[in-house]
Design a protein around this nucleic acid. Structure first.
Lengths: 123, 123
DNA sequence: CTCTATGCAAAAACTTTGCAGGGAT
DNA sequence: ATCCCTGCAAAGTTTTTGCATAGAG
């Protein structure tokens, strides 16, 4: 059961605004990372508000982001699984479900992005 | 011993221009991926020429690129080692020398980007 | 009531494109 | 001689900022 939007906001001592509720609800429902482009038709808020809130969410560790090959930034709620596969042909992103055993000395690892070509695009 | 610039160009049936020679020589010498920003002071060519050639090199499989957290694109000659570690605090990129044992069904894996925080930034 | 969040418009940052002239084969 | 490459300037795309108003606690 996902954490309620109100809980997430409250825990971080952020104000619960309509925009933030809307954003977090959209991301809770999403099964893949989303860009502003993906969301803009569903959003009632301005793009400035979108980016400002995303930025705040990232600072607070609620949201993660990465850049795709299409130069857009993609966002998602931070989850246990942080491995992604990005197909450089079709720009599709998939969550990697298998554990990736990577350890790099004393570095802290936050996420892993594997790029390549998916089966559909190879075939 | 690295492939000579002339050989690389010739193999791909590209014209050997001053701009291309200059670019490939800079990348051959580089030990980390470089952005346009990193190179612009060393370049005698226009930025349009830089990006057009980089783009051509990517098409031909001579060069690889990725986006960093600073929204810039970084480029490097395609090498055997395609694992990188990006520190999200200081934006430094390092080559991961250890083999990363990742395999994803029938997908073709081209590169792996691990993001996190480097020892210097943790300390 | 106070302080933060929002919308709008304009700016910023990086990259791409159009066009006319120059260079490689 | 032919085509591709180049520089310049201008446009494009995504994201950020300034400022005045609205809204949450």
């Amino acid at each position: 059961m996902p954490l309620s939007v109100e809980k997430i906001i409250e825990e971080k001592n952020l104000k619960l605004t309509t925009a933030r509720k809307e954003l977090l609800e959209l991301f809770s429902k999403a099964t893949t990372p989303l860009s502003y482009e993906d969301l803009k038709n569903s959003l009632t808020m301005d793009k400035a508000t979108f980016y400002r809130n995303i930025s705040k969410f990232e600072e607070e560790g609620i949201v993660d982001s990465f850049e795709s090959n299409d130069k857009k930034r993609y966002f998602e709620l931070k989850k246990a699984c942080h491995g992604h596969f990005l197909c450089v042909k079709c720009n599709k992103v998939e969550c990697i479900n298998q554990p990736l055993n990577i350890s790099l000395g004393d570095c802290q690892i936050d996420s892993v992005m594997v790029k390549g070509i998916c089966k559909e695009c190879i075939g």
